[in-house]
Each structure stands twice: as C-alpha cells, then as structure tokens.
Design a binder for these strands. Structure first.
Lengths: 219, 219
DNA sequence: TCATTTCCGTTGTTTTAACAACATACATTC
DNA sequence: GAATGTATGTTGTTAAAACAACGGAAATGA
C-alpha cells in the first residue's frame, strides 16, 4: 500500500503511518485495477463502497439515453468518489465512472467507516471528520458547476468559470484542466459556439488564450 | 425547544429525548428568529455555523451581479442548511438564504459538532452519522439539479424533472412544490417559454396538468 | 361579493445558440 | 520530416429559446 499517498490525501490526512495499518485492518478495503477507458461503475447500479483512487484518475460522466455526454468532473489519485451514494443505502448511481488512464482503486465499506470501532483504532474519528470535509468540498464543487451553468449565455458561463479559476489558481494567468470539448461539456454548451465566443472575447480584449493557457484581463 | 420536531428530523434521528438535552448542552446552539422575506445569510459572507430550521422555511437563492435570480432549493422545518460551508473554514457563501415565511433558526457550531466529547453525550456519534447522511442527501439533490438542467432543451429539462418526481412521489400523479416562475428558475429557463412547452406536451398527450398538479402519461 | 393581485397561458418578434461543414494548427508516430 | 490523427477555430444556416406584451383565470383579502 502506498502510505505516502494515503498520508497526503484529504481522506487520511493527519493520521500517522503507524495508525494507518490499524485503520486499514479495521476498514478491510478491497483493491482493484482498471484499464484506460474501462468503466469502474455504471449508472443504474447501487454502490455500497466509496472509491479511493490510489493511482491514475477517473472521469465522472453522465451519458443519457440519447447519447448526450456531460462531463461532471475528474477525480485524481488521492481523491475519492462515490462517497455520497455509498452513504445513502438503496440510492442508485446517476453517473458513470470511467478510468481516464490505467488506475488502482481502493474500495472502502461506508458502514464500517462510519461505525466507531471502540478503542482499537484511535484515528477513526479523525477519518470521519476528514470524510465530512471531503463531502463538503465535493458539495461545493457541485454548487460551483451549478453556478457556472446558471447563466443563460455562453459568455456568461465562460466568465463564471474563468473568474473562479482566477480565484482558485491565485492569478490572472492559468492553465485549465479541460480541452475545448470537455469545457463545453462541463458548461453545457456547444463546442464550436464556445470557440466562437472565446474568439469574440479575445477580440474584445477581455481575455487572451492559447490552447489551455488563459489570461483574464483585469477587472 | 421543540423536542418532537428535533426527534423527527434527519439530523437528530435516533437520538432519544433524554439524550437530546445532554447533546444540546454540549453543542450550545444559538436560536434566532426571522421575518418573512428577511435574509438569513448573504452571499460573500463566511459561515461558521450550520442552520437547523425549527419553524417556517427558507429559500436558497443565487442573485448575480446583473440581477438574475436562480432558486436553488427550499429548506423546510426540521431540515438544515449551510452545513457544507460550515465544514470548510474560510469558504464564503455563494448563495443567499432568505426566509419564505417567519421562521426560527437554530445555529450549530460545526467545530463542536464534529468533535466527539468523550463520554458525556453518548449519542454524539449518532449525530455525526446523521450529518454525513444529510450531507450526502443534499449532495444528491445538487446532482439532481445538475441533471435537470443538463439537457439543452426546455422539454428535456421538464422531462428530467417530471420523471424524477414520478419516482420520488411514487406515482404518475403528483403535486409539485414550485409555481411556474420558480420551476422555470430551477430549470434555468424562461417562464413563458416553459409554459408554452408544457402546453405543447399536453397537446401531444405526454402529460396533463392543472396548476401544480401533474399527471405524467405512461412510459 | 367585489376589487385587487398574483399567477398562468398565448402570441409574435428578436436574439442566440446549436448544428453542420470545413479549414487550420498542433501533436504524434514512424 | 512526412504522414496521420486530433484539437481548435471559422463560417453560414437553422432551430429554439428568450423576451415583451397582453388577456384571462384563480386566489386573496376586504
């Protein structure tokens, strides 16, 4: 097990390496590996475990009955997915989870995780607090996506997304983690129309960009 | 304090009346009252406490700089709001919280809530598990809103919303909790255009409706 | 019951984004 | 470095939603 990654992760933050063994014994996780492009979970299935990405990264996607795809987010190594569904018994997955690259996933039983196991593993409490923070952060990401898609115009959505990137990345020049098609999916707009709008915004001097690098011009 | 409501709520579910006193002593909550239309929290503020609605109900709204309003949801008595923000120190509110009617709010300190207080209040663990489930449920609601606004067409959004109501309310005839303007805000579309689309769908025999009552016709 | 207000549906116009099709730039591989 | 494939940008057309304005129905309150 990669203890360094675990220690670095949000979920296991603040738990000492010595305690991790106890904790993992208590949680009894299952490790699985996946190929690039392989589906880890499919919409419609129930989910009893939460997933912790040990290596690689996964996409959270929604593919509706008519073939429209919407990229909801990406989960990198050290991050988790499915914790929400795993908390609500009987709830079925609304999204697909797919491996972007080869990856290893650690599946954690939510029932065991939420049950304090007497004194055997002293850091169990800490784990739960971390989980709550992780869920809160994820919640905020969802809220952010809602904000970014709330404006009716493509420009409004782009400005919402880019403004937040300025704050998040702490500067007016930054790199975004999406290509055009993915950004368009995230914002719920047509790619070419979005490219068009980006061009206009650049001509008007609002922004400059080159591939994935953006420069938002002042206030 | 209304112990009956507390016992009925998700957050305090499974905690006996006798234990509630200990628990509340430990949490040391603050109670405030608000008038109809009054803002309980404003976007841009940080939030150190989570809110528990003792009576009345509140709207979660987003009002952007250009005056566009988007209704994100409603929180009724016995439900909570702001728990996400309260979990992430330094995070500022992206939304406004407004009283729909006169209401009483109990503010709970998240720091105290997440810290297990030795053996004094035995149901503290239960409270935390409840909180996690509440956050998960809220998370799913956000996901649902994202799903409902993912389709590009008004009809697609309506079908997404109505299909879920069928599942949620367990039947093809149901009442929705929004008026037309609020539903349009929730779906992120124009009210009159939505009315128009509803008419079309009724003419085509997909649905029937009368005010807030809807009847979704078959599969 | 009447007056007032709020809510809902309809229509026509305008704006905007989706869509399709193509051109160009970039990256990758051999 | 040539060839291929992928990503991005551009343009014109079409479809759809936003918008504005209004009429009528239903709820509300005196």
């Amino acid at each position: 097990m990669n203890y360094f990654l675990l220690g670095q992760s949000e979920l296991f933050a603040g738990i000492e390496a010595g305690e991790l063994d106890n904790l993992l014994d208590c949680l009894n996780p299952v490790k699985k590996t996946y190929q690039k492009g392989e589906y880890i979970c499919r919409a419609g299935e129930p989910l009893r475990f939460m997933g912790f990405v040990l290596s690689g990264s996964v996409n959270i996607e929604r593919n509706d009955a008519w073939g429209n795809q919407s990229l909801l987010g990406r989960v990198a190594a050290g991050e988790v997915f499915g914790e929400t569904y795993a908390c609500v018994p009987g709830e079925i997955l609304m999204v697909d989870v797919a491996a972007v690259e080869p990856c290893e996933i650690l599946f954690l039983d939510m029932g065991k995780l939420l049950t304090i196991c007497s004194s055997a593993c002293g850091f169990h409490n800490r784990l739960i607090q971390n989980l709550v923070r992780v869920m809160a952060a994820k919640n905020l990401n969802l809220s952010r996506k809602i904000n970014d898609t709330a404006p009716k115009s493509i420009r409004g959505r782009l400005l919402s997304y880019l403004s937040y990137q300025v704050v998040k990345q702490g500067g007016y020049k930054f790199e975004i983690p999406f290509n055009r098609q993915q950004l368009a999916d995230y914002l719920g707009v047509d790619r070419s129309a979005m490219s068009n709008e980006l061009s206009k915004m650049q001509r008007e001097g609002l922004i400059e960009y080159r591939r994935n690098w953006f420069w938002v011009k002042g206030e």
